[in-house]
Write a protein that binds this DNA or RNA. Structure first.
Length: 236
DNA sequence: AAGCACCCCAACCGCGGATAA
DNA sequence: ATTATCCGCGGTTGGGGTGCT
């Protein structure tokens, strides 16, 4: 009957997969990833879907270089919390743990090494971790108290970064995601065949519409719809 | 212009914690 | 109270892009 488990797809996501995922998440919210994976028709694990959403497709994400503020904040928080990337990410709106982690690895490690080189090689502490390097030298300390005021880009990291996105292949999708209308809901209400109106919704698996779709949908209403509906102007 | 080395980032993996059954 | 399933986190890796020789 149902061929249980074809092999799951791995590797880079295609634009179409992205759109399918976006569509499904718009309909069902960003919880229950296994369900989303199943229903979306993507031959991916829930885990993979979640990761893609969280790290790339989530509408709130910023893409582009870290601003000086963000950089300093990362340094400070990392000094305080260590590799608690998700925790650090919560303090940096629009940035993901993955992004911060990558950023740290590349930029900060390098910088720490540079500092290490610059510091007198025979200096005391033998355990010269990047933390110690970063912490007890100048520019970082300034931020511990008030991070908002440092540097020239103080207005908002958001603004600083958003402009970097041009030419981004997902531009179209971002625009669609950010549009605050409630197309997905309408799509489902009006006739499920339709694509999710404003987003071209490639093909959700037949399973999607098979999957007691409305039923499931209604089941989530109490808590979950409330969680994500506001962004569609729904459920106020 | 070609080859090489390095950098950056997206994505996977494994594990532990939380929640549901 | 126990077991199963799902979710989220941190670590790691592989591929593409870019700069340098």
């Amino acid at each position: 009957m149902v061929t249980v488990r074809e092999e799951m797809r791995k590797g880079p996501w295609t634009e179409q997969e992205d759109m399918q995922l976006v569509c499904t998440v718009r309909l069902f919210g960003d919880r229950r990833w296994d369900f989303i994976a199943q229903v979306s028709g993507l031959n991916r694990t829930g885990k993979s879907c979640r990761l893609r959403w969280v790290n790339y497709l989530h509408p709130g994400l910023k893409h582009g270089r870290m601003s000086p503020q963000e950089e300093r904040l990362i340094i400070e928080l990392h000094a305080r919390w260590g590799n608690r990337w998700s925790r650090i990410a919560r303090r940096l709106p629009g940035r993901t743990d993955n992004e911060i982690k990558n950023y740290w690895r590349t930029h900060m490690r390098k910088r720490a090494q540079e500092r290490k080189m610059n510091m007198s090689p025979s200096s005391s502490s033998s355990s010269l971790t990047y933390q110690s390097c970063l912490l007890d030298t100048s520019p970082i300390n300034g931020l511990a108290s008030g991070d908002t005021h440092n540097g020239s880009c103080a207005t908002s990291a958001l603004e600083c970064n958003q402009s970097v996105m041009d030419g981004y292949p997902m531009d179209q999708i971002w625009k669609e995601i950010e549009a605050p209308q409630a197309p997905a809901l309408l799509g489902i209400a009006e006739g499920t065949e339709k694509t999710c109106s404003s987003i071209p919704c490639p093909q959700l698996s037949p399973a999607f519409w098979d999957y007691k779709c409305p039923e499931v949908f209604w089941k989530m209403e109490d808590d979950e719809i409330r969680m994500w509906a506001p962004q569609f102007g729904y459920g106020k």
